[in-house]
Amino acid sequence: MTLLPSQASDDERLLALAREALQTEIQGLQAMQQRLDGRFAQAVRVVLACRGRVVVMGMGKSGHVGRKIAATLASTGTPALFVHPAEASHGDLGMITATDVVLAISNSGESDELSAILPLIKRMGVPLLAMTGRADSTLARHADVVLDTGVAREACPHNLAPTASTTAQMAMGDALAVALLSARGFQPDDFARSHPGGALGRRLLTLVRDVMRPLEATPRVAPGATLMETMRAMSAGGLGATAVVDEAGRPIGIFTDGDLRRLIEARDGMGLRELTAGEIMHPRPRTVRPQMLAVEAAQLMEAHRITSVLVVDDDGRLAGALNHHDLMRAKVI
């Protein structure tokens, strides 16, 4: 599409405004980064010592940021919830217990709804952390620890709409969550347990035993089985392969649809009936354990360019099988 000169000029103006807004927010974050001091570490220690939850509060845009901060904390090992300051004055203050920590967010530090309940929070003896852009505000004076989220100006061209200031609040909340999860030794599998319905949860919580085909559904033949017997086992199993097992039930080989095609091509279809599974199998097949992560089995299959893998127990006996369709159905891959 060809732009008219006026359209091209308008696009450049819009892009310039966007770049200026982003630059203003970047400068605000950089300035806040330089101001970080021991108060941040003190805030982290207060939360780590908390036996209850972090109760996040904020009005307006700060409230929206607060909801996100509470969600981030909760999903990274720090129990948290959001309480609306206006609702707190009408009964929701009862959601705060003596074992909690309150994190109050206000750029001006003078939100009426928040200011009204600060004395009550202090009377409860609950530690109060503040995120504010004004060190001399009502919120800052009541707080035990103040995290400075002030910015020189908003990204709004009129310096009115909360933009750079809410970005600073959000970033400070992320910094707090990251410091806390590191201090707690929070690991990816801990994160997955908080997100069992997500892709990460499936990848980090799903084990081979959760998605594998059981032994009774796994085709298998003895080394002395004829090619026809081997093919019938493969067809009945629907796996595209069959295990070749010894008398103890340990897999000594595997024979796949691909092996069959290559065998027919190599022999031009001649002399196949006399062959046994032991003669045509692929020896020393790749195996996995039931307790292995399914994603690790998927990685092994991908690395060796195979579509099926045998599952063995701790004694090396065949316990089942797994192929890429099973992993796809479980949304592991």
Rank of each mutant, 00 (worst) to 15 (best):
S308W: 05
G150R: 06
L204V: 06
L239M: 13
L239F: 02
T307A: 09
K331E: 15
L207R: 14
V47R: 04
R51A: 11
V83T: 00
L36F: 06
A217M: 08
R35K: 14
A330S: 04
A16S: 15
M228E: 14
I117Y: 00
S111I: 07
R284I: 10
V221I: 14
I26G: 05
M212K: 00
G237V: 01
E154Q: 12
T307H: 07
A74S: 15
G28S: 12
A16P: 07
L29W: 13
R19E: 14
L29Q: 14
V208S: 03
H90F: 10
R141W: 01
G66R: 01
D315I: 07
E247Q: 15
A43F: 11
R67D: 03
R284V: 12
A8W: 02
N159F: 13
R134V: 12
V101C: 14
M95W: 04
V178I: 15
G249R: 03
S165N: 09
R305T: 13
Q33A: 15
V101R: 07
E274G: 09
G197H: 11
R250L: 03
D11Y: 07
T24I: 15
V295C: 01
A177R: 03
N107C: 09
V245H: 00
D189F: 00
T226V: 04
V101T: 15
A225S: 14
R213E: 00
R273F: 05
H304S: 13
P157Q: 11
P5E: 04
M131C: 06
R123T: 12
S111L: 06
M57A: 03
L180W: 05
L128K: 09
H142W: 13
A135P: 06
L14A: 14
A294G: 06
S62K: 01
A330P: 01
L204E: 08
L205K: 09
G58S: 06
M301K: 00
L215G: 04
R39N: 15
S137Y: 05
C50R: 07
A183S: 12
G63V: 03
H158V: 11
A277P: 11
G201M: 11
V46S: 03
E12L: 15
T24W: 10
A330E: 00
I96F: 10
L227P: 02
A155P: 13
V211P: 00
L29Y: 13
M32V: 14
I105W: 00
A80L: 08
R67V: 08
I333R: 00
Q33I: 08
A98E: 15
N159E: 11
L180S: 05
V46C: 08
G109I: 03
L15Q: 11
L147S: 06
G198E: 10
T287F: 07
T78H: 08
A294I: 04
T242R: 05
L129H: 04
R284Y: 13
A31Y: 02
R289I: 01
G271F: 08
F255L: 13
